[in-house]
Computed example of a mutant assay.
Amino acid sequence: MTDCGVCVSAGGLSLWAMFLQADLVVKSVMVLLALLSVRSWTVIFSKFMSIKRAREEAEEVMDYADQRDILDGGIHMATGLSGSFADLMVLSVQETQKAKDYGSAGLSMWHQHLLQLMGVIMEEQKDELHKGLGFLDWCAAASPFIGLFGTVWGIMHSFHVAVSGKADIAVIAPGMAEALFATAMGLVVAIPCLIAYNKLSLEVIRFTLKMENFAQELSAAALQKVCTSKSDFL
């Protein structure tokens, strides 16, 4: 067909023509793969942007902490910093101010409580960063098999047509092309998903390690500040 400006012609048979001439099952496979492709690219761009934003927020908070007392809460509250790193800093400031309520015997309990609250913040951030990665992993694994199913079905349909009529290359070739197109679509969906999943997973691991190191730094700073302050339990 030549009325579709976006069709890519291969030997006179366009992709759009192959779709229109395909069996209903093969068409369904192609539509499903097209929907998976759109969804996967949406997830990929969304995840790259969210990780980039989280990384920028983290750098801003870490730069702030390097320039001042890491637990200088009064100034920090006015900066309008956001993200999990900022939440960890605010939590450390607030809990450090509450340490005197635990007394000298409860210092260890206070520190464990601080670590638990930090763990909640970090787990929430990890869950947020991992959202969508499972879909990319599934898509990378399943799409080739979905395409392969369309190919097998298309080949079976082509042979069925061939044996019921004139079995020559002119009869079989279009159906075979449609069938193989389904496999190609599966790979087109799967390859970007696989690459993006590996890249995004690595970025999440790097961010998580940086967040855990920052939490340990805050925890140590909070404990040191409490132990050196003139409180009732010192």
Rank of each mutant, 00 (worst) to 15 (best):
A105N: 12
G106H: 10
S108A: 13
S108P: 02
S108L: 14
H111Q: 13
Q112H: 11
L115Q: 14
L115N: 05
Q116W: 03
M118T: 02
M118H: 13
G119D: 06
V120A: 11
V120Y: 08
I121W: 04
I121Q: 12
M122A: 10
E123K: 13
E123S: 14
E124G: 11
E124M: 14
E124K: 15
D127S: 15
D127Q: 15
E128Q: 09
E128P: 01
E128V: 03
E128I: 00
L129S: 06
L129H: 07
H130D: 13
H130Q: 14
H130R: 13
K131T: 09
G132S: 10
L133D: 01
L133N: 13
G134F: 07
L136R: 01
W138E: 06
W138C: 09
C139D: 07
C139S: 15
A140M: 06
A142H: 02
A142V: 14
G150S: 11
T151Y: 02
T151S: 10
T151F: 08
T151W: 01
V152N: 01
V152S: 05
G154N: 04
I155V: 15
I155T: 07
M156E: 02
M156P: 07
S158A: 15
F159N: 07
F159C: 08
H160T: 12
H160C: 00
V161A: 12
A162Q: 09
S164P: 00
A167S: 14
D168R: 07
I172T: 08
I172R: 00
I172C: 03
I172W: 01
A173P: 01
A173I: 00
P174G: 10
P174S: 07
G175H: 07
G175I: 09
M176R: 02
M176G: 06
A177E: 00
A177K: 04
A179V: 02
L180K: 02
L180Y: 01
T183F: 06
T183P: 06
A184F: 09
M185F: 10
M185S: 04
G186T: 05
L187C: 05
V188I: 14
V188L: 13
I191S: 04
P192I: 02
P192T: 06
C193A: 14
I195Q: 05
Y197G: 05
Y197E: 05
N198D: 12
N198F: 09
L202D: 11
L202E: 14
L202F: 13
E203T: 06
V204P: 02
V204K: 01
I205D: 15
I205Q: 13
R206K: 13
F207S: 12
T208F: 02
T208Q: 08
L209W: 00
L209G: 07
K210C: 12
N213Y: 10
F214C: 08
F214L: 05
A215D: 08
A215P: 07
Q216T: 11
E217Q: 14
